[in-house]
Design a protein around this nucleic acid. Sequence first.
DNA 1: TCCGATGATTGCGT
DNA 2: ACGCAATCATCGGA
Length: 346
Amino acid sequence: YERYLYSIYCGLSIRGAQEEDPPDPQLMRLDNMLLAEGVSGPEKGGGSAAAAAAAAAAGGATDNSIEHSDYRAKLTQIRQIYHTELEKYEQACNEFTTHVMNLLREQSRTRPISPKEIERMVGIIHRKFSSIQMQLKQSTCEAVMILRSRFLDARRKRRNFSKQATEILNEYFYSHLSNPYPSEEAKEELAKKCSITVSQVSNWFGNKRIRYKKNIGKFQEEANLYAAKTAVAAAVQNSQANSPSTPNPGSSGSFNLPNSGDMFMSMPTLNGDSYPGVQVAAGVQSQVGAPHNPTAPQKGPTRCISPICPGLSSWQANGGWQDEAPPCSVTSPVEGPGSVHSDTSN
DNA sequence: TCCGATGATTGCGT
DNA sequence: ACGCAATCATCGGA
């Protein structure tokens, strides 16, 4: 709905004062717009219904009755202004028309005036005033749009997720670090667990992926934390149940992992007594902390991040969800002007 | 009050 | 339709 409205607004934002056929498509769009927003049309009832539907579609929760009533009040204000202005214009149009008619009638005594001429004058006047009306409608639409963006834009009432929710999401993310793209079912499951919507889950993963990729060093601590957590959970589960079920970290639910054949070498790290990844990371982290240009990850003493966390090294194992930052080019700087071929890397 | 963290939106590419 | 990248707008701690 939001995008629909937006496209309409964008479409009508062209201020072309093109006066043509009476069934002006632009005018019709404006009228539809105002009708949909409850500015024009029935004085009361319809407008609030449309506003309620819009708010429900945008916000979801129905607890924001205070803001909602505020929004409605403002919308009512706009509607009143619109109607009074419209009335004023209509009245002015009529007055001006009669005035001109009187003038013409007076002039008809001194010179012959054809009815065609009168008709033409009236037509001109009406066109002029209808263009003014259109401007009024347009500015009203803009006002409504601003009002909507002020009240109904979800960014303006953002609330952080609960600690539990971020915990759950992070657990999933870091236990599926090689392929952090939850399926639709997984998203639904996560949404239910976190008491958020599926689209919020999608937003979260989108943000997380991009921000993780942008600055992996910053997330190392977090990654190690959650890796340890899920590993411990898996270990506990393993020790509790002697059943020969395959130990699958992070697959407590029923997430389907595509190509789950070779990924997740984290199990080998489990057979040790502790988690070298965590310790190494703790030690290296202080050195890594050199957030220089994020755009030049290469060519510095600080590269080769992957050994920080062996258990999580699968982020590069299949090169699945990030293509830049070649991992640990051990080879000497063999950069030719145009021959960076890594032929048959397999 | 400032600034990093964070959820949501938008434009673009596929 | 989905993901990415950039951006917006708010939150929350220093």
